[in-house]
Amino acid sequence: MTQRRSYQVGTGLFILLGFAALAYLATQTTSVANFRQGESYTLKASFTNVGQLKLRAPVKIAGVRIGSVEAIDLDPAKLEASVRLAIDKKFDQLPDDSSAAIFTSGLLGDQYVGVQPGGSPDMFKDGDEFVLTQSSLQLEDLIGKFLVNGSPSPKPAESGDGSAKPPAPDQHQ
């Protein structure tokens, strides 16, 4: 009888341990850890190119996380990416002329939305849109520009964009 009891207690502990491990994995080692369940408000931003930006990527000011990417869509009229950002309620003092840009953490790291605070006395309200945005830096573009500028070709930089872009997809295929 006592033997039987100890099995049951032991099995219970084992199951608890398993679920504790699962909870640990799920909450401490995944994006859930960055996911504050607190109140948030929504801001919008349009980018000509979001690059590798993913859902739930962090939104940061000065390297500090203030929210996350909630949705990424194509604006059918402008044919631009429209990104919805969920910003924590406690960061509601963002000047409405702040700008948003897509950065890459490190050379190969994930992309995030960086916010550069502006100087306006008015603050963003729920549903507002960033006026100033800067798209993701495309590595291919950079390399293309570098190649064109580095070459003796006298062509101006703006046409460099056009001439550098076509080879890029080719290289990938």
Binding site: Q28, V32, D110
Partner: peptide, 8 residues
């Protein structure tokens, strides 16, 4: 880095 890229 782990929490940024691992999805539940």
């Amino acid at each position: 880095n782990m929490t940024a890229s691992v999805d539940v």
